[in-house]
Computed example of a mutant assay.
Amino acid sequence: MSLCLPTGSEKRAHVLDQCMVLFFVALTMIVLAFFCFIGAGLTYGMSDVGISWVVPTAFLLLAIGLHLVARYIAVTIGGWGMMRRIVKIAQDESDSFLTDCDNKSILMVHVENAQTYDKRKMHLEDACLLSLEPGRIVMEGARYRYVIYAKDVQAISQITHKKTKPACISYQIGEVTLDLSLLERKRKSIIKLILTHRVKQSSEDLVARLKESLHHKPAVMSYT
């Protein structure tokens, strides 16, 4: 039978809490960058009142620097740094469902309730390591661990959203149906991170891999 169990690991939960603190730090830096852009605009062309071009240029460079550092903190330190710490913790736990945490085929996914995916939230529901195995999916998260068998899966589809389109998997645990949204977080180099302004990600590849692993027929369920 498929499972969804709390990890019971305070260390993993603590890592997720630390990640949320980093995200708020990054958000604060983005707000400061916004005000620096405003400062650059207000001081531009004010040489007649004694403000030279150095001041708006300094504001502009500071704004760009704050923005890039904020993105680096949120994505690289907060995102992938968090997952590296969870991997290390899972390796030391004897009850971990993942037998090989260093396997390069293991994916990093953000997991949320598919029914409330489009709702604004102040916290990340869960971040998991996902392993695609023949006939089942295993996920070890900061808060929960999941085992999903092919026989319990009702549908696999993709959620329609403005920027991101996560995969959705609906499966049964006994008489209860659980709908999860899965958004893969692919690691980017610092250069790609700088050049990429917005994240518009489709999960068509992830949906295909989920179906292949579970030998699932095309789904008819969809969320809008």
Rank of each mutant, 00 (worst) to 15 (best):
V49N: 10
V55A: 11
S47P: 01
I51Y: 10
L66C: 13
V54P: 00
V54T: 13
P56A: 06
T57S: 05
L66K: 11
L42H: 09
T43N: 05
D48W: 08
S52P: 05
G41F: 11
P56I: 03
I64T: 07
L42W: 13
W53P: 07
I51N: 08
L60A: 12
Y44E: 05
L60G: 04
L60E: 00
H67Y: 13
S47Y: 06
T43V: 03
P56Q: 08
A63I: 02
L42R: 13
A63H: 03
F59H: 08
S52L: 01
T57E: 03
V49M: 14
I51E: 07
V69F: 12
H67R: 07
F59T: 01
G65W: 02
G65K: 05
V69Q: 09
L62P: 00
D48Q: 11
A70S: 15
P56S: 08
G50M: 07
A58K: 04
G45P: 06
F59A: 09
T57H: 04
V55T: 13
Y44H: 10
T57C: 08
T57R: 01
S47A: 15
S52N: 14
W53G: 10
G50Y: 06
L61I: 15
P56L: 02
V55E: 03
I51A: 10
S52H: 09
A70P: 08
L60R: 01
V69M: 12
T43E: 05
I51W: 08
M46H: 05
L60S: 08
G50H: 10
L62N: 03
G45A: 00
P56M: 06
A63G: 15
L42I: 15
F59K: 01
S52G: 14
T43A: 07
A63E: 04
L66N: 09
V55H: 06
V69H: 02
V49I: 15
A70K: 09
L61A: 14
I51T: 11
Y44Q: 09
A63L: 03
I64M: 08
G65A: 14
L62E: 06
A58Q: 03
S52Q: 07
L61R: 04
I64E: 01
L42N: 10
A58E: 03
D48G: 13
R71L: 07
S52I: 02
T43D: 02
Y44A: 14
S47H: 11
V49Q: 13
V55S: 09
M46D: 08
V55W: 12
D48R: 12
V69C: 10
A58S: 14
A70F: 00
M46Q: 15
D48A: 10
